[in-house]
Design a protein around this nucleic acid. Structure first.
Lengths: 239, 239
DNA sequence: CGCTTAATTGACCATAATCAACCAGGGTGG
DNA sequence: CCACCCTGGTTGATTATGGTCAATTAAGCG
């Protein structure tokens, strides 16, 4: 099986054999993290970045009142904290939403890539740029869309991102996330998430038999979500 | 006067004379854009990125119902679409919130920087990383903070970012933004923004004599906003 | 098999939206 | 010069989306 990172990057531009070798040599041996555990602590100063190889993870921020906001859901092939290479100190935490396997990429080696491999550097840079683009879509949804539209957008996005790395197809995805977790991602209460799931089921938009989600009416999902996949940059264009 | 971009980058790491020269040579002649005009159109494919030299600008997304969400407010020294270098197609629009002056940076020259100047590349990469960090803070505010906390966070952020480039000091900032625009940034209606301004005035947190905002009680502002400036990365640390 | 967390449903509440009206200020055309 | 218009600021009344509280059931886990 191809490395999901290479798989994803290859959707955007050619990744040469040399670059694939550099990426393979970059990673420490994979390790498992249990569901619910922190992968990167907030305010820590990592000396490596962490690549998600399997399972789902989340970037999150805790609020003073105990509330939590998830700002991005990571799928296999995503670096969860590539930005710590330059940010130095973490501005948020990363946790495992399911049992995950991850591999570290030492900052020394990543820095060496920026010295010796400009094109590969641009590919990694682009990956952090797409994180920002995902954040912007979530912001628009959070600020100006109601719960249903927001939820639909999340489903559409996760489906496409999982499909990109070969983990979803035929409008079916595995989404082993509890409703409280979805609430933290959507900025909604768990109770309201539950009602939205019920509504989407009742309207025939999707079939939700936890953890399997089948999108029955993709067109309506896209319409309700106002989903425009431009921001995922899945077109192959040289950088 | 120093280029605000150099001023900002110098807060994060040393910018060598050579790098400053490269940045100076990078830019096309400045041009003015009137308030309300688009600087970069959504879905366009720019062949240059645009640096904001004076005035305020916004990244924004339009919704189907005519609603608008501003996802970031740009201050002088900010590239409004540096990400288009690698993203290729814009995933949002950029507009002038006040009269602004901007300067283009041709993608060819930016790409050359990534080939020849790894350290400067990392500084530019970091700038897009901080855009993402700002988005994350806004997301947390949007999803889990009420209007007052959200508004306070925006004020604190803009004060620090303007202070960084020498455009604010002594807890006073110029904020020539209408309440409808602030509403689009905060995900609130203009009416509610008005009420929040009244509330912050009444509580003695700040003095708001449009367009001048004086923060009378910075500590309380920070407390209400739960503002933690880590994400702006204003500490000098080699990248 | 008990314990904890998640899913579900109902009742009630609150933050903020919408609707509406009025005023102020700046710009424009007659 | 001035009436008119448009946008923005302000305030009140009403509505609605979604939160909170609470209780019950279901499900995962040691």
């Amino acid at each position: 099986m191809m490395n999901p990172l290479v798989e994803k990057l290859s959707r955007r531009d050619v990744v040469t054999d040399v670059e694939q070798a550099v990426l393979a040599e970059l990673l420490d041996p994979p390790r498992a993290v249990a569901a619910g555990e922190d992968i990167v602590k907030n305010h820590s100063r990592p000396d490596h970045s962490t690549l998600l190889l399997s399972g789902l993870a989340a970037r999150y921020v805790y609020l003073a009142d105990g509330g939590r906001q998830i700002t991005e859901i990571g799928v296999p092939g995503d670096f969860m904290d590539l930005h710590s290479l330059l940010m130095k100190q973490m501005d948020h935490g990363v946790l495992a939403l399911t049992e995950v396997t991850v591999a570290g990429a030492p900052h020394g080696k990543l820095r060496a890539i920026t010295e010796d491999h400009p094109h590969l550097t641009r590919l990694l840079w682009l990956d952090t740029i797409i994180d920002a683009a995902i954040h912007r879509q979530w912001l628009a949804a959070m600020g100006r869309r109601n719960g249903l539209g927001r939820f639909a957008h999340l489903i559409a996005e996760l489906y496409l991102r999982l499909e990109t790395v070969g983990l979803a197809r035929d409008h079916v995805l595995e989404l082993p996330l509890s409703q409280p977790v979805l609430g933290d991602a959507l900025g909604l209460s768990a109770v309201h998430v539950n009602r939205l799931v019920a509504e989407m089921r009742a309207s025939g938009m999707l079939k939700w038999t936890h953890p399997r989600v089948e999108i029955l009416d993709w067109d309506r999902l896209v319409e309700v979500a106002e989903f425009d996949p431009t921001y995922l940059r899945l077109r192959k264009e040289a950088v």
